[in-house]
Amino acid sequence: MLHLENIVRRYPNGVTALEAVDFRIETGDFLVLLGPSGCGKSTLLRLIAGLDQPQQGRLAWDSAPLGPGDIGFVFQDPTLMPWATAAENAALPLRLRGLDPTPAHAMLARVGLAGFETVRPSKLSGGMRMRVSIARALAPRPRLLLMDEPFAALDEFTRHLLQEDLRALAKESGCTTVFVTHSIYEAAFLATRVAVMSPRPGRIAATHGFTEPVGERLDATFAARVAILTQSLAAQRAG
């Protein structure tokens, strides 16, 4: 789907966030970008979204570059409009493009918020607000879903529920997903492929493809993935 070729991103203060990042995102991937805080994961996600530009390198799309509505973005905070209802928030990308908002209602129901359409964000829990944010990103049926540590601020119980829902939603929709996290367990549970990033300046230090699906969090496949990713991160620290 997308080849990131030798991407370099420096901030105006001289800090190099990304150095020679080179990897591919394949169609249908659930790619997790795993790395320590400050390694440039979010910067990389913004570059893929087209919200930022690299100083060097290029993003080579296999087909035409994705346009409005082809990319869904879920931020670390739900970033909902507090003055709008859950349904209005979920329908925002459709409304901005002059499309029928009905799919947003269906998507709200799919993420478990049927009956909450007319409720404003201030009356929803943190987990419910994130569900609205996910519904908003998926309602226009994007080809690429970008998620920037969306569950980092949630409690463990809610995070597990949302991870399970997200995995099912990604499988149903078939859209390519790039998910940023610094949690090995989250990466092990969700990913079909993990790109491990080095500390700043961020590089893709290793990639791991996982073909065998994880069933439960405590099964052998999950444990094996956690072990592989832990070793990979330890190697980064040592190297």
Partner: peptide, 9 residues
Amino acid sequence: LLDLFRLSG
């Protein structure tokens, strides 16, 4: 949200 508006065209 401004980013989201930009992404939605």
